Simulated assay, not measured.
Amino acid sequence: MSVLGTLSIIASAVLVGTILQRLSGTGVGLVVAPVLSLLLGPAFGVLVTNMTTIVSGLLIMFAVWSRIDWRAYLLIAPAAAVGAWPGAWLVSVLPTGWLSVLLGTIVVLALLVTVTLRRLPEWKHRSAALVAGFIGGFFNTTSGVAAPVMVIYSRVSRWDQLRFSATLQPIFMTMGAASVVAKLTVGSVGEHAALDVPFIWLVIGIPATVIIGIGIATALVRFVPVSLARRLAMTLAALGGVAAITRGAIEILTTA
């Protein structure tokens, strides 16, 4: 694939993910991680996804600032930072084929749990926030996808949807930063498959695309239901997860 084609697909994934995240609270990790892992390799693709969530979480956070529950954030964020370290270690020791399978499996199973478990038992104790933060940080580092974990936590804690979706933005920003720091420290950055794509293009292009996506979503927020945006994000994530599993399985079989 040409450089322009690769960049176009990356930009499209980031744009769609940002729009869905602004509309529903989740979307960037769900949509971007599977796409970037297929284009750039699982380790580097998830790293770029983590970097994208830092930018998207920061910019969207300012748009929803008044609804953020900072007390909940201060419980979840430190636990997520801790969970990033075992995730970074796992990424550093797994071959790329198995890492692709792990990424896709986490995405698909997490989505299945989110969709099928409609009514969950109530768990409002602060320990629930700590557990959700740790697992979310681990999942975010290994697969770039923490949204299903946080959705499950919101259901068991009976978290108000508006405050939940707003608080997710600084949480995602912190998870992304923790994942990047842990991976750079552990040395689990990996090499990306599209070596002809200059990294500086990603550094400049992704934030610009996020800004455009937020602008589009702001215009759509009155017309697109949150439920529709969330269903679309999960559908795209499921397709990407299956593709990642398929790619990883093929790589494992061909190198065995």
Rank of each mutant, 00 (worst) to 15 (best):
H125Y: 00
T167Y: 07
D69R: 13
L220I: 08
L102T: 15
T6V: 15
P34R: 05
G215M: 11
V203M: 15
V115M: 12
L39N: 01
I250G: 02
V210H: 03
R163S: 14
T254E: 15
T18A: 11
F164T: 05
V115E: 14
I135H: 01
P207S: 12
I10D: 06
V107W: 04
R163T: 12
I135D: 00
A178V: 09
P198S: 08
L253I: 10
I206F: 01
V149Q: 09
W70I: 12
S12I: 13
R119Q: 13
E191W: 02
A81V: 15
I216F: 14
A237P: 06
L4N: 06
G144R: 12
L94I: 02
T52G: 08
R155I: 05
M61F: 06
R155Y: 06
L202R: 09
L40Y: 08
A63E: 14
I200T: 13
T174P: 05
F138N: 04
R71D: 07
L253E: 09
Q169A: 05
K183P: 07
F134P: 00
I60M: 12
S24H: 01
Q161N: 05
V107M: 10
V91F: 09
V186G: 03
T185R: 06
R231L: 08
M51C: 13
S92A: 15
G57F: 06
L253W: 09
V64P: 00
A208L: 15
N50C: 13
A193I: 08
V226Q: 12
F138H: 05
L117K: 09
T96W: 00
V189Q: 14
W123C: 07
N50W: 08
V197L: 15
V14R: 01
T254P: 01
K183N: 09
V48G: 01
R163M: 11
P42R: 11
E191T: 13
M61N: 05
W201H: 11
V224K: 07
W159H: 10
T49Y: 08
N140C: 02
L94E: 02
G241P: 06
L30Q: 07
A129W: 03
L253Q: 11
V32K: 04
A79V: 02
H192C: 01
I152L: 14
